[in-house]
Design a protein around this nucleic acid. Structure first.
Lengths: 214, 214
DNA sequence: GACTGTGAATGACTTCACAGCG
DNA sequence: CGCTGTGAAGTCATTCACAGTC
């Protein structure tokens, strides 16, 4: 059933910690630190030192016993592992207040992520500009996505439209989706979906508050 | 070292699936479905049926062998487990485009989450209204939070301010934070933090695209 | 016959703990 | 010495598989 075994080089948990490591390492570099021990770095990140060393060993990022790790070395290694040593054109679908906020966000650049397309279904919004990107109608997606080489799409539309948008993106050739709508998307095998659900996170917090505190 | 053993009734993984289950169950109920088998529900959610049954068994939510589970029964049970059978006043800190978008979001209501306070540090924004909530200055947080009974806060400020905001919230008595800034917050024990990092998610997608596809 | 609920098996990730290097 | 890198052990979550119920 599962065809050729897919090489999963990295535990998914490790992968999801890498951006956090990377962010802290950049900060250390900017502060002029050039060597750091796993103990020190782990403490600053709030993770275990053994876990940190294990994670780095998956990436074959070595330190020097007795000395620690090179900050720059780690930062570059993680950047490469994440694939951020090249540009990633990005589409944002949905130009409501959330979509617009996501399109306006300035932090993508340092991760080599570039918003190159914005879509909406409302003709009144088409033509509007957000940070030098012109909003296109969703029907133009196949053309615009082909032209700009978009490979990642962020879905910021109402729940009722999310599945349609996902279908449209997949048809247009996008195989990685970040979905803000609180619905489980159905997508063909090979398409990667990650969910970002604000309400869900708040619900989790509510539960934790009840069990941890009063 | 660990004081009184803290009852962790639920695996964290289970907990984070509950909002997803809940959402699908509401949808089924609205569609008039009143009984569903673990197999059917699991298929619609894209999870394993054994996992679903196990998760429900943690909550002592029973089905009828040969019949399935009562949709309404499950929905209510999960709502109760998440603590959403009462109102949760919510604060949003940061009234930039992301903060405003989060404050404007209409989906909180069905989860019993209510935005009752919005804060910003910019005096020019204080007094502005978003969805009938007036923006307060962050310095007013202790008073406003006490008055409105806020227990959850969403941090939507620039990275450079996030730690200060977290400190201020904790001082004002908030013990559960949802942080959109891409920094690891340091908080006292007992304060719960959950991270929502858009860039991090996109970085993960980028990596997965590389290893899964070309 | 259809489906649940759950021990037992498996698998995945984390942590320990220490040999070995600089 | 200090600190890494990693087998081995431990912990936690998922999946199997089936006895038991409706």
């Amino acid at each position: 059933m599962e065809g050729i075994a897919r090489q999963r080089i990295l535990p998914l948990e490790t992968l999801s910690r890498l951006p956090v490591y990377r962010q802290k390492l950049r900060q250390l570099r900017e502060d002029g630190v050039d060597t750091v021990s796993s103990l020190e770095l782990a403490k600053q990140l709030g993770v275990g030192d053994a876990q940190l060393r294990r994670d780095l060993s998956y990436l074959r990022l070595l330190g020097r016993p007795g000395r620690g790790y090179g900050v720059r070395h780690l930062e570059e290694g993680i950047t490469r592992a994440l694939g951020l040593d090249r540009r990633w054109p990005l589409a944002i679908v949905g130009c409501g207040s959330l979509g617009t906020a996501l399109a306006r966000y300035e932090g993508y650049a340092r991760d080599n992520l570039v918003v190159t397309a914005i879509f909406d279904i409302d003709p009144a919004k088409v033509g509007k500009k957000v940070r030098s990107v012109t909003v296109s109608h969703i029907d133009e997606a196949p053309r615009v996505i082909a032209e700009t080489g978009v490979e990642l799409a962020v879905i910021a539309v109402p729940s009722s439209a999310a599945q349609h948008v996902a279908d449209a993106m997949v048809r247009a050739g996008v195989t990685a989706l970040l979905n803000f709508a609180p619905v489980a998307l159905a997508v063909p095998a090979g398409v990667i979906v990650r969910q970002m659900d604000i309400s869900a996170e708040l619900q989790i917090l509510a539960h934790l508050k009840i069990v941890e505190n009063g």
